[in-house]
Structures are given as structure tokens and as C-alpha cells.
Simulated scan of single mutants.
Amino acid sequence: MATLDILIPHFNDPEALALSLRSVRRQTWQGDLRVVVADDGSRPDIKKAVSAMAEHSEIKIDVLFNPVNRGRPYTRNVLLDAIDSDYVAWLDAGDEWYPKKLAEQFDRVELVESSHMGTPFWVTCNYDWAWVGRRKKKIVQKTDQDQAKALLIGSSLRAYLWTLLGPAQSFKDVGWFDERLPRLQDLDYFIRFVLHGGSIKNVREDGTFCVYHKSDVGRDAEEIRACNTYIFDKHRVLFNRYGDSFKAMRLYNMEMLAARFAQNNRSGKLARQYMWRAFKARPRAFLNHVRKNGLKA
């Protein structure tokens, strides 16, 4: 049995998958690992390319194929079922790990497990946020705070699976990814983990250990807003815990995020609709935003 399973969903982008696999091969950590790629109904020619990539790889790669496209949460559930190791890490096709990521995270795992805390845990890490066409920006994962509240805010602690490594059971115990969430299923998964007693740790080193290649192009603003609405309704009790002002600010941010997606995909009319809704949720916050940034979401 391998020590670590690295779980990667993939759809119609073998170049992005190759980029991610190269970053796995460059890891300084020397333990046994297995990569599991779940292809979500890619074109036949791309499926052949993925199979060839796995066959000729220097590391062990198992490839699973969905017969048709079922979406990322379904594919992540396929990957959950495929876990066969003591530890698990996630990586999205197109994102990269820096060489010391696994080594630093396993150092933290060893410390946590030696303390015999007995509570489920994941180890995250700081990362670089790389917008297409812009310079990288370091994002720090601050874990020493109310983690449920921080995840809902989404600025100082962000719900990205590809930052994580942890015991396999800590992922299995959360249950399935919610297949009604084509987007933001990471956030729902993190919230459920924390609400059921899980704790997120960070590595001890202060550097960045992976990079998120970020672009809004082709992302559906209405889908993003609908997923945020679903999460708000699903976890309404948690939102209520932090009061009306907190809820109003979260609703404001949901509208502004949807406006950003619409604007970056040249849907100006839709962006203005979301901005108007943001203004109604938090007028002062919206006007402060306009003073600083104009009408940019």
C-alpha cells in the first residue's frame, strides 16, 4: 500500500494535467506515493493522451474514466472512493506544487500526530495567487482563529483542496462532496469538516508551497451566485451565529464576486445588476469600493 494518494480531477486539458504531474515528480519528499487521476468524460483523443501520460510516467499513476462528463463534485467523489493509502493530498489539473510542499506538510503531520490530540486534522500551506497576466501574490492561510467564520469570509483562510494533506480517514469522514454544487464544493466540504470537529493546521515554514493559476475567463457568474446562495441556505444556522451585520457583509461579497465574474466575461449588464444588489446589501461598503476602485467589482 502506498503511503500517500494524490487525487487529481481532470477534464479536457492534458497540458494542465502534465503541468501538475511535473510538480509532483519534483517533490523532495521521498515516501511512496500513488497519483489517481479521475477523468471526467474527456474527448476520446484526450483520454488516450491521459492514458499514455500515465503509462510512460516515472511515478505510479492510476487513471479512472467517467463514461460521460458528470462535473467536478461527482469526480471528486470517485476519487474519494479510490483512496487506498494512509494519507491523501489533492491537486487540481493546472495548478502546481513547489518542490518542498509534501515534505513540509508531512513534518507538520508528524508533529500533530505525536501530540495525540485525537481530533481530525488537515494540513494546509501558504500559496501563490497567480492571476493570468499579473505578478504572483503570496496568500497566507491563517489557521489560528475561528476557522468556520474565517472560511465564510474567505480572505484569511480559504477553502482550496489543492493546499491540503491529511490522514485519509479525515477526508472520508466528511462524507461526499455535494453534487448540487458545480462550483464552491470545496467551501462546503471545508465547512462540514470544521463543524464536525476538524481542525486545519498550517506548516511551520512561512514560505509559499504551491501556486494557483487563476482566471475568471469562461466562468459563469450566475452559476457562482447560485452556488453561494445554496451554501448560504444550507449553512444558514452557521451564518446566523455571527449576527445580522456579518450576514449582510457576506451577501454583499457574494454579489460583488458574481459581478466580478460577469465583468471579466464582458457581461456588463449582468455585472451592474449584481452591483446594484450589493449596494442594497451594504450601501456604505459599496460606496467605499467605488471611491477606491471605480465601478470595478
Rank of each mutant, 00 (worst) to 15 (best):
M1S: 10
L4N: 08
D5W: 00
D5K: 00
R22L: 07
S23M: 05
W29M: 02
G31I: 00
G31A: 00
R34L: 01
D39T: 06
D40K: 01
S42C: 10
I46Y: 04
E58F: 06
I59Y: 04
D62A: 09
N69K: 15
T75A: 10
N77Y: 14
I83V: 15
S85L: 01
D86S: 13
D86T: 05
A89K: 05
K100H: 06
A103E: 11
E110R: 13
S115T: 08
S115K: 11
H116G: 09
M117C: 04
M117T: 04
T119D: 03
P120E: 09
F121N: 09
F121T: 11
V123I: 07
V123H: 04
T124S: 14
D128L: 13
W131V: 08
W131C: 04
V132Y: 02
Q141F: 02
D144M: 03
K149E: 04
L152Q: 01
I153A: 02
G154C: 07
S156N: 11
T163G: 14
T163R: 10
G166H: 08
Q185P: 00
L187W: 11
R192D: 13
R192V: 04
V194Q: 06
H196N: 12
R204S: 15
D206R: 13
Y212R: 02
D216Y: 15
D220Q: 05
E222F: 02
Y230D: 01
F232Q: 01
R236K: 08
R236S: 07
R236F: 02
F239L: 10
A248N: 08
N253D: 14
E255D: 12
E255T: 08
M256E: 12
A259C: 09
N265Q: 13
W276T: 14
R277L: 15
F286H: 13
N288P: 00
K292H: 08
L295I: 10
L295F: 15
